[in-house]
Every structure is written in C-alpha cells, then in structure tokens.
Amino acid sequence: MRQGAKYGALAGAIVVVIAAGVVLTLVTRARPSDRHPDAYLVDAGISGCGTGWSQPTAGVQTFDVTNTSIAGMEVYLQSAATKDVYLDLEALGAGTTARGQAVLGAGRYRFVCLPADADPIAGPVVTVSGPKHVAHATTGIPPVTQNDLIPASKQYGAWIESRLPVLQSETDRLASDVASGDLGRAKTDWLIAHLEYETLGAAYGAFGDADTAINGRPASGRTALDDPELTGFHKIEALLFSGAQASAIAPYTTRLGNDVAALRADFPNARIDPLDIGLRAHEILENALQFELTGKTDGGSHTDLATLDANLTGTVHALEPLRGILKTRYPDLAKTDAAIAATQHLVESFRGADGSWAPLNTLTTAQREQLDAHVDATLELLAPIAAICDVRRSAS
C-alpha cells in the first residue's frame, strides 16, 4: 500500500485515490459481501451520473460506484467550483463496482462520468455540510490538460535532442577503440556511452525500435553473450568483459554507432507522448530496481550501480519539465527532490577514488538494505506523479 492511501479491499476496476495530495492506483472489484456499511451506492452511467450521494456531512466519504452503462467508464469526484479532482476511478468496466474513499470538508462537489467515446457527463452538485476544514482532508488536484503537458514534452524533447550528438561521439569513440584493438580503453568508453544513454529514460517510447537495437536485453532463457539476435550496449558489454577478440566485437560497435546516428537523424521527427514523461519519471527508477538492483542486466562489467546512478540523473531530467505542473499540485515535490539526491549520494558512495564502481555483490547486507530502503522510499514519492500528470477531460 502506498503511503497515505485509504481504500477498501475489493479487486478488477482501477481506483485512483487522491489522499493527502497523493494520487494512488489500486485494482478492485466489489462483491455484495464487501459492501461497506457506510458506503454511498453511486451510479455512473450515460443517463445518470453520480446519483446516490445525498445529504453528506464533512469527513470520510466512502463510495461504491457502479458503471451502469454498456461500455468502459472513468469517473471523477471533483469540486463543482474549482474542478479539483478528489477521486479518480479509472477503467471502470460495464457492470463493475469500484470502491473509493475521500475525506472532504464542507463544499460543493459532483461526480463526472467520462465514457470512452463520448463527452463527459456532469452529475448533480452535492453540498457537503459541516466544517470546511477537517483532519486528514484529501487534497484536490487541479486537472492537467493536454495544453499543460505539450510545453513540457517539447522542453524534454529539446533536451534529448541536445544529448544525442554527445551520445554519438561517445559511441564513435568506442568503435574507434575496438577498431584499433585497444580493448582496455574500450571498456572505459563503453561505460561512458552506456551511462549517457541510461540518462535518457523518459524518451524510450519515442525511440521505438531504436531502443531495442541500442540497449535491448537478451531474450528469455538467453544471456547477452549467447543471444544471436542481441545487439547494442549489452552485447558489446558481454563480449568486452568476457575476453572476446576485437575482431568479434567490431561489428557490434560499428552497428551501435550506426544505430545511434540513425536515432539522431530520426529523432527530430519523433513525438514524445506528453503522458510518457510523468509515467517514466517513476518507471525509470522502478525498472532500475527490477533489473539493475537484481543484477539481471549485468553482462559482465559489474557496473549496475553506475547504471542506477545514471537512472537517478535521468529521473531528475524527466521531472524538470514537469515542475511548473507539479509545484501547485504535488506538496511532496521538495521531499521527492531530496529523496532522489540522498539516494544518488548513497549510490555514489560506492564509487572509488579512481572512478571504479563497486560490484553489486560486494555490498554488505547492511549496505544493501540501506540502498534498497532509499530506492523504495524514493519510488513511493515518485509514484503519484504519473497520476497527477494524467490528462483529465472536463464537463461543462
């Protein structure tokens, strides 16, 4: 359970709860036996949106919301005055009941139903009576529009475009090292180029097949060394650090340089989905936890911690264009920045004075527990960002 979450134990529709400024996701489906004794039974449909909630008083509001239409539905609970969102029920299938909970002060609220292929439907305005300020009140999130995200997408795309010439020069230098037979230097330059690429994580969706060619992982049941289809950084890593001859490595470094050059040429015509940046701000580090901190991507260089460091840098760059959106919507933004910085400081403490990185398996149990705790805490803080930056349609 994410920090600050309050929701019922149900399973099948996706419930996004905004609690204390944090937006969270839970898979749920209500059964009759799960009925909360104090839950409002709310209908969400084409002909009746938000009916069933009446005469509420300030405090905890529990809703069992049923999609009465024949198609998928998304449902918001929002302020009638400001349109701030307090509860978001996503992917609510036909006939599905999802439970959500919000802590509301006095005010005017309404449900908004959003059918997949139709205009939003505003439900009746409901007045919550009682005190305006209540303990542990859910913080409403101002909706984010496509127009809010487009400038962020352009800013991030411009930064990525500025880094691709650097990446190309680094991969060209790697290819030159191998061509000259200087494999010691090639190992150093391989890491430099690979870490550069690992900072670009929020753009991988726009890279398309180029990402697989440049930084793909081996197929299931294969290693980077024996996968005949694998190219890119991980294939080169496996060859370099297994003692392969330069002649065996050269075709892969040449291809890597060509693939990066093609990406650089094609990227100005690519489009970074504005929704991807908020999502990837969390997923970059989540993937590092899954792959780097388990050693699954280690092809023999034992530089997982260096990759984690680069991923943290990539997370910072993914957040940068979103700050204008988040500063008024996410009260834990400063805490998130501090957690990223503290985690990166810890990771970099495992780097020697000569620039070499400690292999992951040399960390003590205490060091590993400390590292895992820092990464987990940072992920908790990054988790709400994708939901906050989700585009929400509004009813008139």
Rank of each mutant, 00 (worst) to 15 (best):
E161F: 07
P384R: 02
V391H: 04
I388K: 05
P37K: 07
I325N: 03
K6H: 11
H345Q: 15
A44T: 01
T66Y: 02
D372S: 15
T66P: 06
R264K: 15
T313S: 15
T336Y: 04
G299H: 04
Q370A: 07
G257L: 01
I340L: 13
D209L: 14
H302T: 00
R323P: 05
G45Y: 00
K187V: 03
S396V: 10
F350K: 10
P37E: 06
G123A: 02
P120W: 04
Q367P: 09
G232K: 10
P165T: 06
Q245K: 11
Q3N: 08
I325Y: 00
Y197M: 00
V23M: 13
D64R: 08
E196R: 12
T328V: 15
Q367R: 11
K187I: 06
E283A: 11
L26N: 11
A366D: 15
H317N: 09
R31N: 10
V125D: 01
G278H: 02
E198N: 06
I385P: 03
D259S: 13
W190Q: 03
P251E: 02
H136N: 13
A44R: 02
K235M: 11
P268K: 06
G12D: 10
A210M: 09
V347M: 05
F291E: 04
Q344F: 02
A219E: 12
Q344D: 13
A238T: 00
S129Q: 10
S247L: 11
A288Y: 06
F207L: 12
D227H: 07
L293H: 03
I272F: 09
N269R: 11
S153K: 05
R173H: 13
P218D: 00
R185I: 06
T231P: 09
